[in-house]
Amino acid sequence: MKRAPASLVTYISVFVGLIVLLLITVAAAYIDLGQFNLPIALGISVAKTLLIVLFFMHLREGARLTWIVAGAGFFWLMILLFLAMADYATRHWGVQAAPF
């Protein structure tokens, strides 16, 4: 049994959303928000990723197992980034002893 594909309106809305988010992320980069520039830029990237993954990559109507595989990729990436950076950020000799 084949599911009916999503409507053209859905795809066009997602595409317009992606372009709007791109314009917002470029505009936000030129405003000095101090330490909030990076979280905002990454937050917008995550929002774009969710739009692409859920609608263009059809995870929304995907099988439960596909959700687990996609989630596992994200989870292991977070282990890689957060545990490694937690180590560098909390050892007093970490960054000071940086090689260059």
Partner: peptide
């Protein structure tokens, strides 16, 4: 088929993830 492709993409996340970690550390340091 679809789960197989997603599994491959999870390995690709790890592949780019290592370099993203390099970037994260270096930006944090400098």
């Amino acid at each position: 088929d679809i789960i197989g492709m997603w599994t491959f993409l999870a390995t690709e996340v790890m592949f780019f993830g290592g370099l993203i970690l390099c970037y994260t550390f270096a930006r944090f340091a400098y």
